[in-house]
Each structure stands twice: as structure tokens, then as C-alpha cells.
Design a protein around this nucleic acid. Structure first.
Lengths: 336, 336
DNA sequence: TTTTAGCAGCCAGAGACTTGGAGTGCTAAT
DNA sequence: ATTAGCACTCCAAGTCTCTGGCTGCTAAAA
């Protein structure tokens, strides 16, 4: 276990490194942080911290930089000490988001923008999946005799729609009756429940081909819009960080971000955890492409279909700030 | 005016520079292109081309690289010579896009993906604005006594929706009658026409506050979803180009791309032109941030609300390939 | 045992210098 | 108009040196 002072030395080193992005030496630490000991003593501590794997030297006779393990210890410390619950960010963010539109998409976009502004990092916001969401309203709108539009309004306020074509003619009256039938069954339920009902098939009315067709389209529609759109903003903030000055280092990250299916897996662990915020530092990330960055993610909404709000930045990010921002964003979206 | 051989020398130099990304000298040109003259002659030509402003030397005693003006001459030449009308890309692309979904968004996303794959550049696809689109169907769906959902189906198949809240209670029956009224007026017309009708206000029925409220929401909804979402893919292709190896050079481009409102203006000239494809090379771009890249853009759909399909890459892009790809994409989307 | 001062050693990074090679411009001959 | 030949130029890469910042060690002090 680390002595109290060594813990403080580690914290000071990380803080300094976060702001300077250059290896930190013993003198700097004694000068800028009130450690109450001489550089020589700090050197001993640094040496011990290095042996313990928390910090490393880029080369002999350079200062030290934190390792992933060092950041981990630092962050664990941060999470343990109860960070102020009600936060500046909370007020900021809520105020900002209150002005937001009726459209979920726009709310998420704006959340992402706020996160990026607060943290100077890349932010990702993913809409909740609809599988577990409850259906509030179901409408079938006749377009032509051969085409109709299915409109599904979720409790969350999200609206889905899908066009469906019929082989034969279908009158508006027929549609209306199907709508009534399906509404009775669906409204107030989630897709999971609908699927179960569909599998039973026992109900007489569900035998009609028309009903079957529409039902299937609804299921496809709800399943497909898996997680809905994702919003990413702040790539340019990342560009400005010195660790990404060579764009080669950006490539793997960019590739992860451009592929939605890959992107989702990055947050798998955040989904499973029930903590209010998960921090993955450098090599802790599942994907090797993200070995050079840290990911701070939280989910909002509950259960399987939860949405994700996350910030991605260099391992040398301001963890305290980022964690508070993610938490605040999560709370803000939770309440909506 | 350029002699025929000098034209060929310029073309050869550009071609070589596009593939090597390094200054090209006289010897290389004579060795790899059948110019039928000696390096010394080519040197004379190069000197003349430099005087004319088509090429430049990064420094004395280096080879030449094309200037923006050089690319311009090259591209004008390309556009003048009728490039094969029916194209490999056409078949490729149409085939690829045929497998596409009912959702417009997905079609556009896929188009962007194909463009990026074909050109190794960044591609941007912007959905058509809805201002000029005709309305096919209008529905008001009652959610609660104080809330309803407006659903608008455009002829293009696009579906919009917007929630609206009432101060007082509104029964489903009332809604239905408003729906009938508005449908009569709107269906088959465009927003432009609706606005005109609204401004007249002469019609008795339009005096009702409820009708007014809903009408206004519809107008907001159609105007706001201006150009709809934009899709960008292929940033990582750009990253791999040597001109962007220092990520500083990428920053301005990234910033343009991240701001939708700025992004739209980049294509202003493409909208105005009625050519099937507009090429802006380096400093020809309106925005200074894009001085280092070329933009090839075409619009699809007609009139003011047209959509945009575009490719952005280094000025050292393969113009022939990119232009053909953009044309093909444009045609593919036009037909839908 | 812990802390400190002092000192020798280490090494990356910046600057100066050298060299090799690719490419040009010029001139004179074809 | 074209070509061969030659002198010249300049970058890029390599080598070398110097310097500043930092360490680790040792011996003394607390």
C-alpha cells in the first residue's frame, strides 16, 4: 500500500502531467506542490512509485509520466472520495439542455456538444435502443390502396415510422380495424412483450395475413433502429491535443468511431456495470485501437436498451472534470 | 495557349504527382511517359509551364508540383473531353444501392460509404431540403388530451413528425376535423405553397386558434429539417494521405465538417450551377479552411431544396475517378 | 529509519556541419 | 526546335557536439 505522501506525490505528478503533457521531475513537484519535503526525498518516492508500476520514464534521466496503472490508482482514489454530488456542471448542463427541442435527436446532439465544450474531448451520445421501450401510440396511415405508413410513438417521445406495401388492395377501413386491434395489444407494452404475444399466435384475430404482415414490419422496425443514431462531436478538440499531433495516432480511433457496430462494443462494459460511470484507461479498453485513449461512459435509461453517454480523450485527460461531466449528462438525460 | 506537347507534359506531371505525392522531375517524366523527347526538352517545357503558373517548385533544384491553376487546367481538359458516359461506377453503384433500405437515411449513408470506398476520400451526402417537396399525406395523432403528434409524409417517402402541446383540451374528434381541413389544403402542395396560403388567411376556417397552432408547427417542422441530416464518411481515408500526416493540416477541415451550418455553404456554388458536377480546387473554395483540399460536388433533385452529394480530398486527388463517382452517385440518387 | 545535500552520470533534443543525390538552368552543338 | 553536357543549387539524411534537466548514489544530518 502506498504511504500517504507517495499518494500525494502521484496525484501531484499526474495533475502536473495532465496540464503540461511533458515528463515531470522531482524539482517541479516540490516547487509547485506543497509537499514539505526536498526534491531528493521526492526522488526516492518517485523511484518507489516506478517500482510499483504507477509511473515510468520515457528514457533514463527524463522526468516521469504516469502509466495506465498510475492513472487507474488516481481515478480510483477520485471515485472513492465522494466528489461533490450537486455540481456546477449539473446546473450548467441542465440550463443548457432545457432550451432543447422536442426532438430526441436534437437533444442528444446538444448533449454531445455540451460535453465536448466542457471537457475538450470527443464525446459520443447514443440513443437508447427501443427494444425495451414502451409503446405509447400506434397508427396506420393509408397512403394508397397498396401502401400504408406505420407510425409508432414511444413513451420516450421517440417516433418511428415505416412504409409497408400490400400485394392486394387494402381499404382505409380495413387498416383502421387492424390499427384498433394492434393498439389494444401493444399500447403500454414493449417490443419484448409484443414478441412474446406474437409467438403465441393463439389469438384468432392474429391469423389474418394483413395483421401478420404489419406485425412483422413493426417488429423489424423496432429491432432495426437499434440504439438509434449515434452522435459524435469534438473530433477537432482531440486533434489539438499534442498526443495526436501525428495523425497516425488518430487513425485507429477514427476507424472505431466511423464504424457504428464496432463503436457499440466499446461501451459494452458500461452497459453491464450498474455504476453511474465507467472509466476505461488506455489498454484497459477492449479494443486495441483504443489503447492510447481513455473512455468515460455512463448509461442512461435502464436495462438492456439503455442509451450511452461517453467521453473519449487522451489518457492524459482531466478525469475529475470528465467524470463529473459524464455524470451530469447522464442525469440530465435520465430525467427527460 | 499551351502547345499540345506541353499539355501532355502537364497531364503526365499531374498524373505522376497524384500517385507519388512527391515533386516530379524531367527525367521521371521521359522515362515513364512516352513523350518522345529528351529530358532537356521537357525541362524547357516545364520552365514554360512554370512561367505560365501551372506548376511550381517547392524549392530550387527540386522537381515540380502542380499549382491549383495547373489542376484547374487539367480538370477543365478532363471535363471537356467527354468522359465515358455510362460508367463502370454506374453499374457498381446502382447494384450496391439497389440492395438499399426503404429508409432515405440509410440510402444516403450507404451512398456515402460507396463514394468513400470508390475514391478513398471523404464523402458528404446531404438530404434534400423539404421546402419544395410535395406533401403526400398529413396525419394528426392524438396522444393525450393535451398532446398530439403531427405526421407528415412527403412524396419522396420521407416522413417527418413533431409533437405539439395544447393549452386546453382537444378531443380526437376535433383533431380529426382539423386533419381533414388541412389535408384538403396541403396534400399535393409544397411548403412554399402552404406558406402563401397561410399568409392569405382569408379562409374562414383558418381563423381557429387550434388550426393556426398546428399550421405553424407544420411550417416550423418543414423549415427546420432543412437539408435533413448530413452523412459524412471516410475521414480515415483522408488521414492516410501524406498531406494530412500532420494533424494540424486536418484541423480546419475537421472544423468545417463538424459544423453543419458552415458545411452547407461549402456547396452553395454547386447548388447554383446547373452543371452535373462542380469542382473547386484548393483556394477556389469559398472557405479558407478548405484551401488545401478539393471539393467535387453535385446536386440531386431539382430547384432550391436539392440534395448534395460531394467528395472532399487533397488537391492531389484522382479527379477523373472522383468526378465519375460523384456523377454516378448523383444519377443513382436522382432516380430514386 | 527517514530525510537531505551534493555530486557524478546519463540521455534526448537542438543546433552546426557534412555529404550525396536529384534536379535545374544554361550554353553550345545538332 | 531539340539535345547533350556541365556547373550549380538545395534538400534530406547522417554525424557530431553541446547543453539542460533529471536521475541515482553516497554520505551526512535529523
Amino acid at each position: 500500500m502506498l504511504s500517504d505522501r507517495r499518494q500525494r506525490v502521484l496525484g501531484a505528478l499526474i495533475e502536473e502531467y495532465i496540464s503540461r503533457a511533458m515528463p515531470v521531475g522531482s524539482r517541479t513537484l516540490t516547487e509547485r506542490y506543497h509537499l514539505g519535503v526536498s526534491p531528493a526525498t521526492v526522488r526516492n518516492d518517485l523511484s518507489a512509485l516506478e517500482d510499483a508500476g504507477y509511473i515510468a520514464q520515457p528514457h533514463t534521466s527524463a522526468g516521469r509520466i504516469p502509466t495506465d496503472a498510475g492513472y487507474r490508482a488516481f481515478v480510483d482514489d477520485l471515485l472513492a472520495s465522494d466528489m461533490v454530488a450537486e455540481d456546477v456542471f449539473d446546473r450548467d448542463m441542465v440550463a443548457e439542455l432545457r432550451r432543447s427541442a422536442t426532438e430526441l435527436d436534437e437533444l442528444l446532439e446538444r448533449t454531445s456538444a455540451v460535453l465536448t465544450r466542457l471537457t475538450d474531448c470527443l464525446s459520443v451520445v447514443i440513443a437508447p435502443s427501443l427494444i425495451t421501450g414502451q409503446i405509447r401510440q400506434l397508427s396506420l396511415i393509408s397512403l394508397t390502396n397498396h401502401q400504408a405508413l406505420i407510425v409508432i410513438v414511444m413513451e420516450s417521445g421517440r417516433v418511428l415510422n415505416r412504409q409497408v406495401s400490400f400485394d392486394g388492395e387494402v381499404s382505409p377501413e380495413e387498416l383502421a380495424s387492424v390499427q384498433n386491434l394492434l393498439s389494444r395489444v401493444f399500447i403500454g407494452n414493449s417490443l419484448a412483450e409484443i414478441k412474446a404475444a406474437y409467438d403465441k399466435k393463439t389469438d384468432e384475430a392474429f391469423r389474418s395475413p394483413l395483421v401478420r404482415l404489419i406485425l412483422e414490419e413493426i417488429i423489424v422496425c423496432l429491432s432495426e433502429s437499434n440504439g438509434g443514431r449515434s452522435h459524435r462531436l469534438g473530433m477537432s478538440s482531440l486533434l489539438q491535443q499534442p498526443e495526436f499531433s501525428s495523425s497516425r495516432s488518430l487513425l485507429p480511433i477514427m476507424q472505431v468511431l466511423e464504424d457504428d457496430t464496432v463503436l457499440l462494443h466499446v461501451f459494452d462494459d458500461a452497459m453491464e456495470s450498474d455504476a453511474d460511470c465507467v472509466v476505461r484507461i488506455g489498454t484497459e479498453n477492449a479494443s486495441e485501437s483504443l489503447a492510447g485513449v481513455s473512455v468515460v461512459a455512463g448509461q442512461y435509461g435502464r436495462g438492456e436498451g439503455a442509451g450511452i453517454v461517453a467521453v473519449i480523450g487522451p489518457t492524459r485527460m482531466n478525469y475529475s472534470r470528465v467524470i463529473r461531466a459524464v455524470r451530469a449528462a447522464r442525469r440530465a438525460l435520465q430525467d427527460e
